[in-house]
Write a protein that binds this DNA or RNA. Structure first.
Lengths: 154, 154
DNA sequence: GGGAATCAGTTGCAGATTGCAACTGAGAAT
DNA sequence: ATTCTCAGTTGCAATCTGCAACTGATTCCC
């Protein structure tokens, strides 16, 4: 699964990882999102639970809103309060968060983290995030290969 | 899929996302890893293809090695050269990279990125990274719920 | 109605991090 | 012997981060 060097520069411009990191790649962004996924909505909640500096939090929330990952909704019943909610774009980051979490669980903390995401119907934990083929079968690394898009069939 | 506030502080200590970000959460780390996944191995390759400052690259590579994500292997045939290779721990980050890439592709760049990861046998692209149940069935957000670990069955 | 508390920030400032450009030093190529 | 390549390091300016204190608009409580 290796490429030659010539294609790399072109690749950087095309690759969406760089683009994604512009939105969510800053120091606290992932932890803010993790909080949001677990239901945090308000400035003071994020601040006190994450222990992040207030100016940084203010800045990161603004940037996440700017990038359409969170939306800022003033609370009509209390005009001081503002709710930050995940947009659909933000909710779609769940696989990223879960992959990262499972990796950390496996290789660093060892300790299984809490809470656990389960299938609401069966109450069984979700499967580990893994690379799968179009039919949902898990693929090992040996079964994978990088292919230039132009070489794809129809 | 929401939690009460009291458990959040405890959660931060337990959650492995924070731990994972200690290893790979810095500005350039993901892009370095992306390069490594596509076969980059040498300092000058990373530097020229990513356009990263040399001192920062030096520092990031050292930290990734320190964290066991890359391993540093002096080349026996040319004693100037050093190869940086993904360890098993590093290779296990593939789901994170792919999730992030697919997200960027869907929500930001729109343009499908290159190269494509395919099943070597069938030459068909891998499936999108998604949350699945233990049997491999894709789960929608409505089917998901956060559960305290203590409430899990057996 | 008046004072205290809460919420979502902003400001000032010190220290850490990043980025650029130039330099180094070992080894390889000619 | 000289030049070139590789993997860094160094010095310095600019940016970013983090802490603590402050603001300004509500809302709560009596």
């Amino acid at each position: 699964m290796v490429l030659d060097l010539e294609r790399h520069r072109e690749m950087l411009r095309q690759c969406s990882i760089a683009a994604a990191l512009e939105s969510v790649g800053e120091r606290w962004s992932f932890l803010i999102l993790r909080g949001a996924f677990n239901g945090l909505q308000h400035f003071e909640e994020f601040q006190s639970t994450l222990g992040i500096a207030r100016n940084i939090l203010s800045n990161r929330l603004a940037r996440l809103v700017e990038n359409g990952v969170l939306q800022r909704e003033p609370d009509p019943t209390d005009r001081r309060r503002v709710a930050y909610r995940l947009t659909d774009k933000g909710l779609d980051l769940l696989p990223v968060l879960l992959s990262l979490r499972q990796w950390g669980e496996k290789w660093i903390s060892a300790m299984p983290s809490n809470p656990v995401l389960v299938d609401r119907a069966t109450r069984r934990p979700i499967a580990p995030m893994a690379v799968r083929d179009a039919d949902g079968r898990m693929l090992t690394r040996a079964e994978l290969e990088w292919l230039d898009r132009s070489e794809l069939d129809g």
